[in-house]
């Protein structure tokens, strides 16, 4: 498991740097912008009041935008979706990419159990996500020294922890779907759909209370955003981690029971239950 963890983490290094530095750059822009905002608060509030009320409602009203928590919340609203793209792509590819390209065949022929391989890769995915968020956190805390934003380094970690929990669910949905569906692309597209639907449903639920129950069934609803600096909702955080663990366990269970496909076998498609299938005698490329 250790060898697989290290190998997979090394494969993640480029994405850790690219995503991490991009997220850090966001922090380097957002935090100094708070000072600009505070210095021109009246004009900014006037500017925001001119937005359509539906737009403001979609983003939760932006009522506390003149506080560090409210300001950060407005800036971090999209973070789980942006970083979710990484999670969905990486989660769906964690095993299925090597399988579709035919590489998993030879890897699995080595003395490593399926569970161990799965565990090593999953741990590397979690570590990579945390590494990206750590770089992101550095981007948010380094400009604090010269900023009027009264937020400690520890407080600044809390919205990112909330992001981590939501993003982890997206990644695990993608991983689980990659074990269920016949191709990585289908898994990524489906998980991405869940992610984007959650974002919009959560916003529209602010306009239409009837949508609230549906939004509550999706992970984005449990993203605290900037308000997490006032205290992490531990129940939400642990709940999201538990859902991730459940999806990961289901994915591991499926991975242990399925055939490893080889490159060139192609898309197996949806298979009918065996009792509905008529054995045929056509030759198969074996």
């Amino acid at each position: 498991m250790g060898a697989e963890f290290l190998h997979t983490l090394v494969r993640f290094r480029g994405r850790i740097l690219a995503w991490g530095l991009a997220m850090a750059a966001l922090g380097l822009v957002v935090v100094p912008f708070y000072d600009v905002y505070v210095s021109q608060e009246e004009q900014m509030l006037q500017f925001i009041e001119n937005y359509p009320p539906e737009f403001l409602a979609f983003f939760g009203g932006m009522t506390a935008i003149n506080t560090p928590a409210g300001f950060l919340d407005s800036q971090l609203a999209m973070l789980p979706v942006i970083l979710g793209i990484f999670a969905v792509l990486a989660g769906s590819a964690l095993l299925a990419d090597d399988e579709e390209s035919g590489r998993l065949d030879l890897i699995m022929a080595h003395p490593v159990s399926r569970l161990s391989l799965f565990g090593g890769r999953l741990a590397a995915f979690v570590a990579a996500t945390l590494a990206i968020l750590t770089l992101c956190w550095l981007g948010f805390v380094l400009p604090l020294r010269g900023s009027s934003m009264d937020v400690s380094w520890g407080q600044m970690a809390l919205p990112l922890l909330s992001t981590f929990a939501v993003v982890l669910v997206f990644g695990m949905i993608a991983l689980l779907l990659s074990m269920l569906l016949s191709s990585r692309r289908k898994a990524a597209a489906s998980a991405g759909g869940v992610m984007v639907a959650g974002f919009f449903l959560s916003g529209f639920a602010n306009l239409n209370a009837d949508l609230k129950p549906v939004a509550r069934a999706l992970p984005y609803e449990y993203f605290q955003g900037g308000f997490a600096i006032n205290g992490l909702n531990v129940a939400w955080f642990i709940g999201l981690l538990a859902v991730s663990a459940l999806f990961a366990a289901l994915a591991a269970w499926l991975f242990q029971r399925r055939d490893i496909r080889v490159g060139g076998e192609g898309d197996a498609g949806w298979s009918r239950p065996r009792f509905l299938s008529k054995p045929r005698t056509e030759k198969l490329s074996t």
């Binding site: 035919g102 065949d105 030879l106 490159g263 060139g264």
Partner: peptide, 9 residues
């Protein structure tokens, strides 16, 4: 083991 269709990183 040597697979029939070898794919490497």
């Amino acid at each position: 083991y040597l697979p029939g269709e070898l794919h490497l990183e």
